[in-house]
Design a protein around this nucleic acid. Structure first.
Lengths: 254, 254
DNA sequence: AGCCGTCGTTGATCTCAATCAACGGCCGCA
DNA sequence: TGCGGCCGTTGATTGAGATCAACGACGGCT
């Protein structure tokens, strides 16, 4: 692992689809993704190694085991990240939304696959040039470390879920964490009112995320409905009628 | 998240137990842990914010939910990192050995606990001063990012195990990954000879790591013994008699 | 040396979630 | 408008691993 010199050096500029800093200003992920670590001024350097990419729902854009040539920042839509076994068993390790950064890899290969759940827009960075930008802007590397650390916390939480929670606890935990994802005030006023959530992923996705089968996910939802804790307006639109009682079912970490 | 200025500034020096660079040279983790990112010369700066700590087997030295005041580098022994539920259920998220770095945290609190499996020696860094050292040596931050990225890969692998593998696959996967941990040539000559492993952790630890019960771990080991794939000289000393056949049972990732 | 507590193994039984099966609703398409 | 495939739900049955139980080996202690 050789050091990258600190002095500025010429950066490969890809003229195709390169967003200008101005375009970045319009970006949905401008103030939540990687880009939040830079000023509008410095963002230009990042923009020069970026390309906008559109992926339609269901398409794979990262394949486990292939060479890791790119980093991605999601600017629109939702993505599932997963690993598979040879016989087809699949474990979704995370659902990623706007602002999420994907593509950290060791030994040059992706250790996971990624697919668009909805239609997705991505900001794609070429690995080599981006690493050079990192060398110039340590703030980016720090941001990336924050991202990685946060992902690690989520991953540990998920291991606890997969290793030790019951079906109903898993589904409840998912509902609560999914509601917190879009909640601007995480541990603000304790949730007494109802919460509306949209679930872009399929029941199969949920099952593969929670280490269950679709049938068990469905039965758990039905039980929560029967107990008056949630209701569905549509298969992909759930309302938490009693968020606190759902939270109580997650076997909340001490 | 305010920026840490780049210019060198005075660093708090703790005169108690501070290892000198010379002492670092003797350290078992000198060339594998965080310290590997620095030259002997620069290591002095790191050493000034470090303390040597000894933890006896079974003792907890990081408590989930407490303020994250320290980073740790393991210089001797093995550690279990875990999360617990209020009712006592426990998920071990990793076994950490010499050279492993522990303590990355978000929002200032540890999201996990850590206990010594064997007697353990640690190099402890105070958080504040260490962050200042990071600002001076970006190589450290990069190293940390590498560490975090690698941990993430392991965590995803473990989620696949916990969510989708059978008991025998989990135990086999553990044996193989544990054998690779100390293997200096990971994908070198395919393992045809036998491999001796020492398992410092208890069956309960293994169960809590693999999302099983001690009974199931024990039964899986017994089955592997019955099939002539492994043998035990002692409860904590296993020999892989047919490493390739054990590997075949892990449902190897494609 | 003898005692006690912990740890690991094995057997018997139980249970939660998986599997197998059927069906209704929805959507895209002819 | 009718058809076919996919998705989600619900019911019946099965099964892998948990739970309950017993016991032997070991190690620390007096």
């Amino acid at each position: 692992m050789r050091d990258v010199p600190f002095a500025r050096r010429p950066i490969t500029i890809n003229p195709v689809n390169s967003p200008t800093p101005g375009q970045c200003g319009d970006c949905g992920a401008r103030h939540i993704g990687l880009c939040d670590a830079l000023t509008d001024e410095d963002l230009g350097f990042l923009a020069r190694v970026a390309q906008r990419v559109v992926i339609s729902a269901g398409k794979t854009f990262i394949d486990e085991g292939t060479t890791a040539n790119h980093f991605y920042d999601i600017t629109q839509g939702d993505v599932r990240v997963f690993k598979s076994l040879a016989d087809g068993r699949r474990q979704i390790t995370g659902f990623m939304g706007v602002g999420h950064f994907i593509g950290l890899a060791v030994s040059g290969q992706y250790a996971f696959s990624a697919e668009a759940i909805t239609d997705v827009k991505l900001c794609r960075f070429d690995r080599g040039p981006l690493l050079e930008v990192f060398a110039e802007f340590p703030a980016l590397e720090r941001k990336l470390l924050d991202v990685a650390t946060h992902e690690m916390v989520i991953a540990q939480e998920q291991m606890l879920l997969l290793g030790r929670k019951t079906a109903i606890e898993r589904v409840s935990s998912f509902l609560i964490s999914w509601s917190e994802r879009s909640d601007p005030y995480p541990d603000g006023t304790s949730k007494t009112s109802t919460v509306n959530l949209s679930l872009p992923m399929s029941r199969t996705d949920l099952a593969d995320y929670l280490g269950l089968t679709t049938e068990t996910v469905s039965r758990s939802f039905s039980q929560l409905k029967r107990d008056g804790l949630i209701s569905f307006t549509d298969v992909h639109e759930v309302t938490l009628l009693k968020p606190q009682r759902v939270a109580a079912l997650t076997a909340g970490e001490q």
